[in-house]
């Protein structure tokens, strides 16, 4: 019970102090819209194209919504030593990690609906399989947030956090089949795609929104789960080793 209070205190504070602040909202929203717009225009426009661009846009919204703030805030709080308060609080480190990522996950999920809202006015979305799309959105948000946290525990400066996460984020736009199929990539890059969790999340979204998945959704979900678990464990280990001196 007390731990739950602590959990929600951290979550609530982060939401108020970081996530629902203008700089984060603009980064989280503007960026995916601009990118998706580019691909949309390049593909020639048209209502049927909206539906094919939408999965990539949703995936991008989640990725940037979760990671743009998390890595920066954690490194920032670490540098200002405020993070020590969290390490001193009587809650297990695993729970602390969840509280810290909770805000990012929530924001990523909310962010995912913005492309849907836009799409609603421009195309017919009645074919979307929500029962698949919703869990995919949540899973992708969780995995992206864990990725953001992993980045933030691996670096010590704010600029490193930004550089390091962009080092992964930008290639992912091309490598993960967001806006064009992985099969269109040069053959030597294709194995790389399957090492990135976003590939599996985007694949489910393609299946759920446009009916164009390339792998069985069960396999995609399993892959996402495993990536999430791996990142969680790596991060926990890193916190134990680097933060508790």
């Amino acid at each position: 019970m007390k731990r739950l209070t602590a959990f929600f205190s951290i979550l609530g504070k982060d939401m108020r102090a970081y996530y629902f602040k203008p700089p984060n909202i603009s980064w989280g929203l503007l960026f995916p819209v601009v990118w998706a717009g580019m691909f949309f225009i390049k593909s020639g426009g048209g209502a049927e194209n909206i539906v094919s661009v939408l999965p990539g846009m949703v995936a991008l919204s989640i990725l940037f919504g979760t990671t743009s703030m998390l890595a920066v805030t954690v490194t920032f709080e670490r540098k200002a030593k405020a993070f020590e308060r969290l390490l001193l609080a009587p809650i297990p480190l695993g729970m602390l990690m969840l509280a810290k990522t909770g805000g990012a996950i929530l924001f990523g999920v909310l962010n995912a609906f913005i492309p849907f809202l836009v799409g609603l006015f421009l195309a017919d979305l009645s074919g979307v399989a929500w029962s698949v799309a919703l869990p995919a959105i949540v899973m992708l948000a969780v995995v992206s947030a864990f990725f953001g946290l992993f980045v933030s525990v691996s670096v010590s400066e704010v600029f490193e956090a930004q550089t390091f996460s962009n080092f992964f984020r930008f290639p992912m736009i091309f490598l993960c089949g967001l806006f064009f199929p992985i099969s269109d990539l040069p053959a030597y890059l294709q194995p790389l795609s399957y090492l990135l969790p976003l590939t599996y999340g985007a694949d489910i979204l393609h299946a759920a929104i446009a009916g164009k998945g390339t792998m069985p959704p069960g396999l995609d979900f399993l892959a996402l789960f495993l990536f999430g678990l791996l990142l969680y464990l790596l991060t926990l280990r890193s916190i134990h080793r680097r933060w508790i001196l």
């Binding site: 731990r3 602590a6 205190s9 951290i10 030593k81 020590e84 308060r85 001193l88 609080a89």
Partner: peptide, 28 residues
């Protein structure tokens, strides 16, 4: 714990900082 550096959250006001710290220890 009162650390050697005054390390509360710069963006929160005094009252919210104290409430937040109480929350960390499970205070309602």
């Amino acid at each position: 714990v009162v650390p050697d550096e005054s390390n509360l959250y710069p963006e929160l006001n005094g009252f919210d900082n104290l409430c937040f710290c109480g929350g960390l220890y499970g205070m309602r």
